[in-house]
Amino acid sequence: MSSVLKVRNLGFAYPDGHPALADVNFAVEAGERVAVLGPNGAGKTTLVLHLNGVLSGGSGQVEVSGLKVAKPNLKEVRRRVGIVFQDPDDQLFMSTVWEDVAFGPANLGLRGEELSMRVKTALAAVGMEHVADRPPHHLSFGQRRRVAMATVLSMHPDILVFDEPSSNLDPAARRELAELILSLGLTTLLVTHDLPYALQLCPRSLVMNAGSIAADAPTASVLSNGELMAANRLELPFGFDPATTGSSVRSRA
């Protein structure tokens, strides 16, 4: 298997000197779905913003499908890394859904029929073709999150990165989104506080704390390790047992 994402010795401090990442190392192989878990302020979002070069200037290196994240490569890197941000209202800023989904590929230079095909295919992948002409702010939150996914799918990314995909979704929309992520079959990095969601979607998890990787292990074993969980301020919802749920997820897979 080839690595889609390689992060080596990544370190970063904000201009005020506050260290956000320290010696982060991991790789994600093609087709893998990996969860990034950790408490608030652990550096998860800072890490995500390094993957496509929105943040840079620290130490270490990030590679996407063999391409180094550096200024001359940023356009291609941003095509390869599709980030779905936590709040779809940050991601959907154009007047209509169609224009929003076309924004990325148009920035890559696509026009005409090729651009239309990209938009149609991406909207079809998330089941949102019927809202193409509507303004994004007229959609429900769940629909907006799906359209936000389409805005990066239209760029044909090598890896999808989700920042808290299940936040603010009702249970049905949460389940539908999980089914959609599974059906896409893309290499996925999923940043979340929703541990059952991580167990359902990602066989492997990275635990981050204070800017470092505290653990890199199968999700079921991370969630079953009470000591590791407590040390990293991770807690399961009341009544949730990763042992029984984990085995049912494995048997369905």
Binding site: L49, V54, R78, F85, D90, F93, N107
Partner: peptide
């Protein structure tokens, strides 16, 4: 945040 999301899509 909107600007970051735009830059992430090649703006």
């Amino acid at each position: 945040r909107v600007f970051m999301a735009m830059v992430s899509r090649g703006y």
